Simulated assay, not measured.
Amino acid sequence: MIQSLPLLDKTVLIPRGENQAKSFSQLVERYGGIPIEIPLIAFRPIEKNQRLHEALLVLDTYDWIIFTSNVTVETFFSFLKKEGVSKAFPKIAVIGKKTAEVLMERGLSPEFVPSAYVAETFVAEFIPLIDKDSRVLVPKGNLAREYIARSLTGAGAVVDEVVIYETYMPDESRLKLANMLADNQLDILTFTSPSTVDHLMDVVKEYRLDEQLKNCIIGCIGPVTEKKLRAYGLMVHASPKEYTVKEMINSTIAYLDMEE
């Protein structure tokens, strides 16, 4: 093995869409791998959203707004622009480095970022910052967990959750994924969320490709995604403690080194 190219000639599934896949693919290429971009997840704004419209009208009355992903930031601001809202912004809490970066590109800085990028850590570290009856706005996707809102409500906060986008798997991804799995053309599968796992497994079940998965190395980001993979009976070979794409790739490389 060439030490500087630990992924040499290995095909790596990149489960993100065109706008999000570039840096992921470049990282794989840097280590000699072959990125295969098949978006397992895509997002589209909810078309009619009366609840969000009402929340935006009173945006300045919230003490906090929580963004759990860069998609949430981008979608929320697209609605903000469309509605022409210019009210004062509440304090901002985010989960994840990328979410903070996307926010800062818009000239806003988060007041709070947890030490680990999972809902449980976020809640444990964030609750001491809020008072009883603090008003909190949580824009989210249709498949997002309710853990944050439920926990904050239990701590006495008044939480408004608003679904602003829906998650789906692009139709064009289904056949491409099925064909590549059937032909054993994917060496490493990477998963960035529980939804990416569900969407891939929908295809696996539809085309009866369970056996083909046994030939793949599997890496993921975060304990919730790992739990989802294990619920399907899949082996997880790489699941780093730091929940980033870079560390997932490093963890995958470490696994490959052990298998040498």
Rank of each mutant, 00 (worst) to 15 (best):
S23Y: 10
E37L: 10
T11S: 15
L186D: 01
V163R: 00
M235P: 11
G156N: 11
N179S: 09
E226K: 15
L152G: 02
T99W: 04
E259Q: 13
V236C: 04
V197I: 10
L143A: 08
V123C: 14
I92D: 00
L8I: 10
G84W: 06
P170T: 08
T121N: 13
D131F: 13
Y117P: 00
I38R: 01
S251C: 12
V71E: 08
L103H: 03
S78Q: 14
I127S: 07
S109I: 12
V123A: 13
P15R: 02
Y147C: 02
I14R: 04
D63K: 09
A157P: 04
F112T: 04
M201C: 04
G84N: 07
P110S: 06
V73S: 03
A55G: 03
L7I: 07
A182W: 10
P139N: 06
L152P: 01
M169W: 02
Q212R: 15
Y147L: 14
S134H: 04
I249D: 00
S78T: 11
L186P: 02
K132A: 11
D131L: 14
V245C: 07
S86G: 08
S195Q: 04
N184M: 05
M180N: 08
T252R: 03
T153G: 12
P15T: 13
V163E: 01
D160H: 10
T68F: 07
E259T: 12
L181T: 02
V138I: 15
V28N: 00
P223I: 08
E111V: 09
M1G: 11
E226M: 13
A55I: 01
A178C: 07
L129F: 14
P170Y: 06
L181I: 05
K246P: 00
S134L: 08
Q185C: 09
S239N: 14
R135K: 15
Y62L: 00
E18P: 00
V245F: 12
